[in-house]
Design a protein around this nucleic acid. Structure first.
Lengths: 188, 188
DNA sequence: TACAATAGGTAACATAGGTTGCACAACATA
DNA sequence: TATGTTGTGCAACCTATGTTACCTATTGTA
Protein backbone atom coordinates (compact mmCIF):
# COMPACT_ATOMS: atom_id res chain seq x y z
CA UNK A 1 0.00 0.00 0.00
CA UNK A 2 2.80 2.47 0.64
CA UNK A 3 4.81 3.90 -2.28
CA UNK A 4 7.91 1.98 -3.32
CA UNK A 5 11.30 3.03 -2.05
CA UNK A 6 13.20 4.94 -4.70
CA UNK A 7 16.49 4.55 -2.85
CA UNK A 8 18.16 1.72 -0.99
CA UNK A 9 20.70 1.77 1.81
CA UNK A 10 23.23 0.46 -0.67
CA UNK A 11 22.62 3.18 -3.25
CA UNK A 12 22.95 5.82 -0.58
CA UNK A 13 26.12 4.26 0.78
CA UNK A 14 27.59 4.17 -2.70
CA UNK A 15 26.75 7.79 -3.36
CA UNK A 16 28.27 8.68 0.01
CA UNK A 17 31.40 6.74 -0.89
CA UNK A 18 31.68 8.65 -4.16
CA UNK A 19 31.21 11.96 -2.40
CA UNK A 20 33.95 11.02 0.04
CA UNK A 21 36.21 10.11 -2.87
CA UNK A 22 35.63 13.52 -4.43
CA UNK A 23 35.61 15.76 -1.39
CA UNK A 24 36.89 13.76 1.56
CA UNK A 25 34.95 12.95 4.72
CA UNK A 26 34.21 16.66 5.28
CA UNK A 27 32.48 16.82 1.91
CA UNK A 28 29.97 14.22 3.01
CA UNK A 29 27.07 16.43 4.12
CA UNK A 30 23.40 15.55 4.11
CA UNK A 31 22.55 18.09 1.42
CA UNK A 32 25.51 17.19 -0.80
CA UNK A 33 24.60 13.54 -0.53
CA UNK A 34 21.00 14.31 -1.40
CA UNK A 35 22.11 16.20 -4.49
CA UNK A 36 24.40 13.33 -5.49
CA UNK A 37 21.38 11.04 -5.26
CA UNK A 38 19.05 13.51 -6.96
CA UNK A 39 16.61 13.66 -4.08
CA UNK A 40 15.93 15.55 -0.87
CA UNK A 41 17.58 14.68 2.43
CA UNK A 42 14.50 12.78 3.58
CA UNK A 43 15.28 9.35 2.08
CA UNK A 44 18.70 9.49 3.75
CA UNK A 45 17.26 10.01 7.21
CA UNK A 46 14.56 7.43 6.55
CA UNK A 47 17.17 4.74 5.90
CA UNK A 48 19.90 5.97 8.26
CA UNK A 49 19.50 7.12 11.82
CA UNK A 50 21.75 10.12 11.23
CA UNK A 51 24.79 11.25 9.27
CA UNK A 52 27.09 9.48 11.69
CA UNK A 53 25.57 6.19 10.62
CA UNK A 54 26.15 7.14 6.98
CA UNK A 55 29.80 7.85 7.77
CA UNK A 56 30.00 4.45 9.44
CA UNK A 57 28.64 2.80 6.31
CA UNK A 58 31.19 4.66 4.18
CA UNK A 59 33.99 3.57 6.50
CA UNK A 60 32.85 0.00 6.29
CA UNK A 61 32.54 0.14 2.49
CA UNK A 62 36.02 1.65 2.24
CA UNK A 63 37.43 -1.16 4.35
CA UNK A 64 35.77 -3.73 2.12
CA UNK A 65 37.22 -2.00 -0.93
CA UNK A 66 40.67 -2.06 0.66
CA UNK A 67 40.30 -5.78 1.32
CA UNK A 68 39.44 -6.29 -2.34
CA UNK A 69 42.68 -4.51 -3.32
CA UNK A 70 44.63 -6.85 -1.05
CA UNK A 71 42.80 -9.91 -2.32
CA UNK A 72 43.35 -8.92 -5.93
CA UNK A 73 47.11 -8.48 -5.55
CA UNK A 74 47.32 -11.67 -3.54
CA UNK A 75 45.39 -13.63 -6.15
CA UNK A 76 47.24 -12.17 -9.14
CA UNK A 77 50.39 -14.01 -8.13
CA UNK A 78 52.53 -11.31 -9.70
CA UNK A 79 54.37 -10.87 -6.41
CA UNK A 80 55.15 -13.21 -3.53
CA UNK A 81 52.44 -13.04 -0.85
CA UNK A 82 54.30 -10.84 1.62
CA UNK A 83 55.11 -8.30 -1.04
CA UNK A 84 51.62 -8.48 -2.50
CA UNK A 85 50.22 -7.23 0.81
CA UNK A 86 52.37 -4.13 0.64
CA UNK A 87 51.66 -3.57 -3.04
CA UNK A 88 47.91 -3.80 -2.44
CA UNK A 89 48.12 -1.29 0.39
CA UNK A 90 50.05 1.14 -1.79
CA UNK A 91 47.85 0.59 -4.84
CA UNK A 92 44.83 1.40 -2.68
CA UNK A 93 46.55 4.60 -1.50
CA UNK A 94 47.30 5.50 -5.10
CA UNK A 95 43.86 4.90 -6.57
CA UNK A 96 41.71 5.86 -3.58
CA UNK A 97 43.57 8.72 -1.94
CA UNK A 98 40.72 10.10 0.11
CA UNK A 99 39.63 6.69 1.31
CA UNK A 100 43.20 5.79 2.22
CA UNK A 101 43.61 8.98 4.20
CA UNK A 102 40.33 8.33 5.97
CA UNK A 103 41.26 4.75 6.91
CA UNK A 104 44.97 4.95 7.54
CA UNK A 105 46.01 8.53 8.16
CA UNK A 106 43.68 9.32 11.02
CA UNK A 107 44.28 8.89 14.73
CA UNK A 108 44.86 5.22 15.37
CA UNK A 109 45.57 5.04 19.06
CA UNK A 110 45.22 1.49 20.29
CA UNK A 111 44.99 -0.02 16.83
CA UNK A 112 47.35 -2.99 16.48
CA UNK A 113 49.96 -3.01 13.73
CA UNK A 114 47.99 -5.68 11.93
CA UNK A 115 44.42 -6.63 12.77
CA UNK A 116 43.46 -9.94 14.33
CA UNK A 117 45.54 -12.99 13.68
CA UNK A 118 47.19 -11.59 10.57
CA UNK A 119 50.47 -11.21 12.44
CA UNK A 120 50.37 -14.91 13.32
CA UNK A 121 50.41 -15.68 9.63
CA UNK A 122 52.90 -13.06 8.50
CA UNK A 123 55.66 -13.56 11.03
CA UNK A 124 56.21 -17.27 10.30
CA UNK A 125 56.36 -16.49 6.57
CA UNK A 126 59.11 -13.94 7.24
CA UNK A 127 60.94 -16.37 9.51
CA UNK A 128 60.83 -18.94 6.72
CA UNK A 129 61.90 -16.46 4.01
CA UNK A 130 64.74 -14.93 5.98
CA UNK A 131 65.76 -17.51 8.55
CA UNK A 132 65.39 -14.89 11.31
CA UNK A 133 64.30 -15.57 14.89
CA UNK A 134 60.73 -14.62 15.79
CA UNK A 135 61.88 -11.51 17.61
CA UNK A 136 64.05 -10.36 14.71
CA UNK A 137 61.34 -11.23 12.23
CA UNK A 138 58.90 -9.01 14.12
CA UNK A 139 61.29 -6.08 14.03
CA UNK A 140 61.98 -6.75 10.36
CA UNK A 141 58.27 -6.68 9.64
CA UNK A 142 57.82 -3.46 11.59
CA UNK A 143 60.51 -1.81 9.52
CA UNK A 144 59.07 -3.10 6.25
CA UNK A 145 55.65 -1.92 7.30
CA UNK A 146 57.05 1.51 8.11
CA UNK A 147 58.45 1.64 4.62
CA UNK A 148 55.23 0.50 2.95
CA UNK A 149 53.16 2.96 4.96
CA UNK A 150 55.65 5.71 4.14
CA UNK A 151 55.27 5.21 0.40
CA UNK A 152 51.51 4.84 0.61
CA UNK A 153 50.97 7.97 2.66
CA UNK A 154 53.31 10.05 0.52
CA UNK A 155 51.39 8.97 -2.56
CA UNK A 156 48.02 9.57 -0.91
CA UNK A 157 48.94 13.18 -0.18
CA UNK A 158 50.31 13.66 -3.73
CA UNK A 159 53.74 14.33 -2.28
CA UNK A 160 55.04 11.49 -4.43
CA UNK A 161 53.68 10.10 -7.68
CA UNK A 162 55.24 6.75 -8.46
CA UNK A 163 54.21 4.13 -11.01
CA UNK A 164 53.51 0.76 -9.44
CA UNK A 165 56.52 -0.64 -11.31
CA UNK A 166 58.75 1.89 -9.55
CA UNK A 167 57.09 1.10 -6.24
CA UNK A 168 57.90 -2.55 -6.79
CA UNK A 169 61.58 -1.77 -7.27
CA UNK A 170 61.72 0.45 -4.24
CA UNK A 171 60.04 -2.19 -2.09
CA UNK A 172 62.56 -4.75 -3.30
CA UNK A 173 65.39 -2.40 -2.32
CA UNK A 174 63.98 -2.10 1.18
CA UNK A 175 63.31 -5.81 1.55
CA UNK A 176 66.68 -6.97 0.26
CA UNK A 177 68.54 -4.25 2.11
CA UNK A 178 66.88 -4.92 5.47
CA UNK A 179 67.16 -8.64 4.97
CA UNK A 180 70.90 -8.31 4.41
CA UNK A 181 71.16 -6.08 7.45
CA UNK A 182 69.20 -8.40 9.72
CA UNK A 183 70.83 -11.60 8.54
CA UNK A 184 74.29 -10.12 8.96
CA UNK A 185 73.46 -9.13 12.53
CA UNK A 186 72.08 -12.62 13.15
CA UNK A 187 75.50 -14.15 12.53
CA UNK A 188 77.28 -12.15 15.20
CA UNK B 1 45.01 58.75 23.53
CA UNK B 2 43.50 55.44 22.62
CA UNK B 3 43.45 52.59 25.15
CA UNK B 4 46.44 50.27 25.14
CA UNK B 5 46.24 47.02 23.25
CA UNK B 6 45.65 44.17 25.64
CA UNK B 7 46.71 41.65 23.01
CA UNK B 8 49.44 41.50 20.41
CA UNK B 9 49.59 39.62 17.13
CA UNK B 10 52.18 37.37 18.73
CA UNK B 11 50.08 36.53 21.77
CA UNK B 12 47.17 35.69 19.54
CA UNK B 13 49.32 33.57 17.26
CA UNK B 14 50.68 31.69 20.25
CA UNK B 15 47.23 31.04 21.65
CA UNK B 16 46.15 29.87 18.20
CA UNK B 17 49.16 27.55 18.04
CA UNK B 18 48.24 26.08 21.42
CA UNK B 19 44.66 25.59 20.37
CA UNK B 20 45.86 23.81 17.24
CA UNK B 21 48.08 21.60 19.37
CA UNK B 22 45.12 20.64 21.54
CA UNK B 23 42.37 20.33 18.99
CA UNK B 24 43.93 20.34 15.54
CA UNK B 25 43.34 22.91 12.82
CA UNK B 26 39.58 22.32 13.02
CA UNK B 27 39.62 23.32 16.67
CA UNK B 28 40.95 26.74 15.78
CA UNK B 29 37.72 28.75 15.73
CA UNK B 30 37.32 32.42 16.45
CA UNK B 31 35.31 31.82 19.61
CA UNK B 32 37.62 29.09 20.93
CA UNK B 33 40.61 31.33 20.30
CA UNK B 34 38.91 34.19 22.12
CA UNK B 35 38.24 31.96 25.10
CA UNK B 36 41.86 30.77 25.10
CA UNK B 37 42.90 34.42 25.22
CA UNK B 38 40.26 35.35 27.75
CA UNK B 39 38.69 38.02 25.58
CA UNK B 40 36.01 38.46 22.97
CA UNK B 41 36.60 37.78 19.29
CA UNK B 42 37.04 41.48 18.57
CA UNK B 43 40.79 41.82 19.29
CA UNK B 44 41.42 38.90 16.93
CA UNK B 45 39.68 40.58 14.03
CA UNK B 46 41.30 43.89 14.86
CA UNK B 47 44.77 42.41 14.49
CA UNK B 48 44.01 39.84 11.78
CA UNK B 49 42.00 40.35 8.64
CA UNK B 50 40.13 37.09 9.16
CA UNK B 51 40.56 33.58 10.53
CA UNK B 52 42.36 32.51 7.37
CA UNK B 53 45.12 34.93 8.24
CA UNK B 54 45.28 33.47 11.76
CA UNK B 55 45.64 30.00 10.26
CA UNK B 56 48.43 31.31 8.09
CA UNK B 57 50.23 32.67 11.14
CA UNK B 58 49.84 29.32 12.89
CA UNK B 59 51.22 27.51 9.85
CA UNK B 60 54.17 29.83 9.76
CA UNK B 61 54.82 29.47 13.49
CA UNK B 62 54.62 25.69 13.18
CA UNK B 63 57.18 25.75 10.38
CA UNK B 64 59.50 27.86 12.50
CA UNK B 65 59.09 25.43 15.36
CA UNK B 66 59.90 22.54 13.04
CA UNK B 67 63.04 24.32 11.89
CA UNK B 68 64.07 24.71 15.51
CA UNK B 69 63.71 20.95 16.00
CA UNK B 70 65.96 20.38 13.00
CA UNK B 71 68.47 22.95 14.15
CA UNK B 72 68.59 21.51 17.64
CA UNK B 73 69.29 17.97 16.49
CA UNK B 74 71.83 19.26 13.99
CA UNK B 75 73.63 21.30 16.64
CA UNK B 76 73.57 18.60 19.30
CA UNK B 77 76.04 16.53 17.30
CA UNK B 78 74.61 13.32 18.76
CA UNK B 79 74.04 12.02 15.23
CA UNK B 80 75.77 12.62 11.92
CA UNK B 81 74.13 15.49 10.00
CA UNK B 82 72.14 13.38 7.55
CA UNK B 83 70.68 11.27 10.33
CA UNK B 84 70.04 14.32 12.51
CA UNK B 85 67.70 15.66 9.86
CA UNK B 86 65.59 12.54 10.03
CA UNK B 87 65.68 12.41 13.81
CA UNK B 88 64.55 16.02 14.07
CA UNK B 89 61.65 15.36 11.70
CA UNK B 90 60.56 12.35 13.73
CA UNK B 91 61.04 14.10 17.08
CA UNK B 92 58.83 16.92 15.83
CA UNK B 93 56.19 14.36 14.82
CA UNK B 94 56.42 12.75 18.25
CA UNK B 95 56.21 15.91 20.34
CA UNK B 96 53.94 18.01 18.13
CA UNK B 97 51.54 15.52 16.60
CA UNK B 98 48.87 17.95 15.49
CA UNK B 99 51.38 20.40 14.05
CA UNK B 100 53.16 17.60 12.21
CA UNK B 101 49.90 16.38 10.72
CA UNK B 102 49.03 19.89 9.67
CA UNK B 103 52.39 20.49 7.98
CA UNK B 104 53.27 17.11 6.55
CA UNK B 105 50.17 14.97 6.30
CA UNK B 106 48.02 17.29 4.22
CA UNK B 107 47.76 17.51 0.45
CA UNK B 108 51.18 18.39 -0.88
CA UNK B 109 50.71 18.42 -4.62
CA UNK B 110 53.58 20.20 -6.31
CA UNK B 111 55.68 20.41 -3.18
CA UNK B 112 59.25 19.28 -3.84
CA UNK B 113 60.75 16.43 -1.81
CA UNK B 114 62.99 18.95 -0.09
CA UNK B 115 62.52 22.70 -0.20
CA UNK B 116 64.89 25.04 -1.98
CA UNK B 117 68.51 24.15 -2.33
CA UNK B 118 68.48 21.64 0.50
CA UNK B 119 68.74 18.78 -1.99
CA UNK B 120 71.91 20.34 -3.42
CA UNK B 121 73.49 19.98 0.01
CA UNK B 122 72.13 16.58 0.93
CA UNK B 123 72.90 14.63 -2.23
CA UNK B 124 76.66 15.36 -2.24
CA UNK B 125 76.83 14.33 1.43
CA UNK B 126 75.25 11.00 0.56
CA UNK B 127 77.56 10.57 -2.43
CA UNK B 128 80.50 11.14 -0.14
CA UNK B 129 79.20 8.83 2.61
CA UNK B 130 78.27 5.97 0.30
CA UNK B 131 80.35 6.39 -2.82
CA UNK B 132 77.20 6.22 -4.96
CA UNK B 133 76.63 8.05 -8.23
CA UNK B 134 74.41 11.13 -8.13
CA UNK B 135 71.49 9.24 -9.62
CA UNK B 136 71.83 6.36 -7.17
CA UNK B 137 72.31 8.76 -4.29
CA UNK B 138 69.04 10.49 -5.18
CA UNK B 139 67.14 7.21 -5.17
CA UNK B 140 68.84 6.25 -1.92
CA UNK B 141 67.75 9.51 -0.37
CA UNK B 142 64.19 9.07 -1.62
CA UNK B 143 64.03 5.66 0.02
CA UNK B 144 65.51 6.94 3.27
CA UNK B 145 63.06 9.80 3.24
CA UNK B 146 60.18 7.40 2.70
CA UNK B 147 61.33 5.51 5.74
CA UNK B 148 61.71 8.60 7.89
CA UNK B 149 58.32 9.93 6.85
CA UNK B 150 56.80 6.51 7.49
CA UNK B 151 57.99 6.44 11.09
CA UNK B 152 57.06 10.06 11.69
CA UNK B 153 53.54 9.75 10.34
CA UNK B 154 52.88 6.50 12.19
CA UNK B 155 53.97 8.17 15.41
CA UNK B 156 51.96 11.31 14.69
CA UNK B 157 48.76 9.28 14.36
CA UNK B 158 49.59 7.27 17.52
CA UNK B 159 49.75 4.11 15.47
CA UNK B 160 53.28 3.61 16.78
CA UNK B 161 54.87 4.85 19.98
CA UNK B 162 58.63 4.49 19.85
CA UNK B 163 61.28 5.99 22.11
CA UNK B 164 63.79 8.13 20.23
CA UNK B 165 66.47 5.55 21.09
CA UNK B 166 64.47 2.87 19.31
CA UNK B 167 63.89 5.21 16.39
CA UNK B 168 67.62 5.70 16.15
CA UNK B 169 68.24 1.97 15.88
CA UNK B 170 65.52 1.52 13.30
CA UNK B 171 66.91 4.37 11.21
CA UNK B 172 70.35 2.81 11.37
CA UNK B 173 68.90 -0.50 10.14
CA UNK B 174 67.36 1.25 7.17
CA UNK B 175 70.45 3.28 6.37
CA UNK B 176 72.90 0.40 6.65
CA UNK B 177 70.57 -1.99 4.87
CA UNK B 178 69.86 0.30 1.94
CA UNK B 179 73.52 1.32 1.74
CA UNK B 180 74.54 -2.33 1.46
CA UNK B 181 71.88 -2.89 -1.15
CA UNK B 182 72.86 0.13 -3.25
CA UNK B 183 76.59 -0.38 -2.99
CA UNK B 184 76.27 -4.05 -3.97
CA UNK B 185 74.26 -3.05 -7.04
CA UNK B 186 76.88 -0.43 -7.88
CA UNK B 187 79.55 -3.07 -8.32
CA UNK B 188 77.69 -4.99 -11.05
C1' DT C 1 -12.05 2.91 -8.30
C1' DA C 2 -11.52 4.39 -3.32
C1' DC C 3 -8.59 3.79 0.59
C1' DA C 4 -4.89 3.22 3.92
C1' DA C 5 -0.20 3.39 4.71
C1' DT C 6 3.89 5.71 3.96
C1' DA C 7 8.07 7.47 0.92
C1' DG C 8 9.47 11.90 -0.66
C1' DG C 9 9.78 17.07 -0.99
C1' DT C 10 9.60 21.50 1.28
C1' DA C 11 10.60 24.37 4.61
C1' DA C 12 11.45 25.14 9.19
C1' DC C 13 14.28 24.88 13.52
C1' DA C 14 18.65 24.37 16.05
C1' DT C 15 23.49 24.87 16.41
C1' DA C 16 28.20 26.22 15.15
C1' DG C 17 31.23 29.30 13.20
C1' DG C 18 32.87 33.79 10.62
C1' DT C 19 32.25 38.51 10.77
C1' DT C 20 30.63 43.16 12.02
C1' DG C 21 28.08 47.37 14.13
C1' DC C 22 27.53 49.81 18.21
C1' DA C 23 28.06 51.66 22.72
C1' DC C 24 31.29 51.97 26.32
C1' DA C 25 35.63 52.23 28.67
C1' DA C 26 40.44 53.37 28.92
C1' DC C 27 44.08 56.59 28.62
C1' DA C 28 47.58 60.19 26.77
C1' DT C 29 47.30 64.90 26.45
C1' DA C 30 45.95 69.62 27.27
C1' DT D 1 40.13 67.12 35.28
C1' DA D 2 38.00 67.27 30.56
C1' DT D 3 38.56 65.40 25.92
C1' DG D 4 39.23 62.85 21.71
C1' DT D 5 40.65 58.53 19.97
C1' DT D 6 40.04 53.88 19.60
C1' DG D 7 40.42 49.00 21.68
C1' DT D 8 36.86 45.84 23.76
C1' DG D 9 32.73 43.27 24.80
C1' DC D 10 28.17 42.28 23.45
C1' DA D 11 25.01 40.92 20.52
C1' DA D 12 23.47 40.54 16.05
C1' DC D 13 23.70 38.81 11.22
C1' DC D 14 24.87 35.38 7.79
C1' DT D 15 25.97 30.91 6.14
C1' DA D 16 26.46 25.91 6.44
C1' DT D 17 24.90 21.74 8.31
C1' DG D 18 22.10 18.25 11.00
C1' DT D 19 17.54 17.12 11.81
C1' DT D 20 12.49 17.06 11.81
C1' DA D 21 7.34 18.37 11.13
C1' DC D 22 4.06 18.31 7.82
C1' DC D 23 1.88 17.93 3.52
C1' DT D 24 1.56 15.52 -0.88
C1' DA D 25 2.00 11.72 -3.98
C1' DT D 26 2.16 6.87 -4.72
C1' DT D 27 0.54 2.21 -4.82
C1' DG D 28 -1.19 -2.65 -3.30
C1' DT D 29 -5.54 -4.14 -2.03
C1' DA D 30 -10.47 -4.47 -1.34
Amino acid sequence: MPPKFKFTRNEITNAALNLTRKAGPDGLTARALAEELGCSVKPIFDLFKNMEEVQGAVLSAAQDLYQSYLAEDMAAGKYPPYKAGGMGYIRFAREERELFKMLFMCDRKGEPLKPGKEMDVIIPVIMKNTGLSREKAELFHLEMWIFVHGIASMIATSYLDLEMETVSGVLTDAYMGLKARFCAAEEE
